[in-house]
């Protein structure tokens, strides 16, 4: 776990936790006392009840403690380097989750909307391809590890330019 860190006035919040989170409270805390922020975009990920042709009863999120937080911080730093952001947030849950449960929240705050929209999409696209989390689904056909999707790689690749670290 790592709390907020401030670098030259920019706020980076990264958390990995078992417990649920309150989206409104998270965004309120992110923007509190930062009047330069003109807009916040957020992405909230939920557990779906259907994956492919299987009904999902629950899933268990495994991660790599330590590296996960470091990788989420690297992704956040990369977003701050690319866009004029005031604050970013990534909260990701681990452990057992059921359909409908909140699983991840990404948010980006900036003076203007376009940087916030783009940075938020970047955060979730890179999280999906780089942050060391794995989903074990309990379906009506038994337990199975979720396979990585090529479409997620393609989503992350659209952000890659010559300046991107690999």
């Amino acid at each position: 776990m790592s709390g907020p860190s401030v670098d030259a006035g920019k706020l980076v919040v990264v958390r990995v936790q078992h417990e649920d989170f309150d989206v409104g409270a998270e965004i309120a805390a992110l923007t509190q006392g930062r009047p330069a922020i003109g807009g916040v975009t957020s992405f909230l990920g939920l557990v779906r009840d259907i994956h492919g042709d299987a009904r999902v009863g629950a899933m268990t999120l495994e991660h790599f403690p330590g590296m996960t937080e470091r990788e989420l911080a690297r992704i956040s730093d990369e977003a701050h380097a690319r866009w004029p952001l005031e604050a970013t947030l990534i909260v990701h849950r681990v452990g057992r989750l059921e359909p409908g449960d909140r699983i991840v929240l990404c948010a980006a705050a900036s003076a203007h909307r376009q940087a916030a929209f783009d940075a938020c999409a970047f955060l979730i696209d890179f999280l999906k391809t780089r942050a060391p989390f794995w989903k074990l689904e309990a379906t009506d056909g038994g337990e199975r590890w979720v396979e990585a999707r090529a479409s997620d790689d393609a989503a992350a690749a659209r952000w890659q330019g010559p300046e991107t670290r690999s």
Binding site: G45, I124, K128, R130, P132, W134, V146, A148
Partner: peptide, 10 residues
Amino acid sequence: VALFPPVTGG
């Protein structure tokens, strides 16, 4: 050294 399959979070 950590070894793992492609990640599936988010």
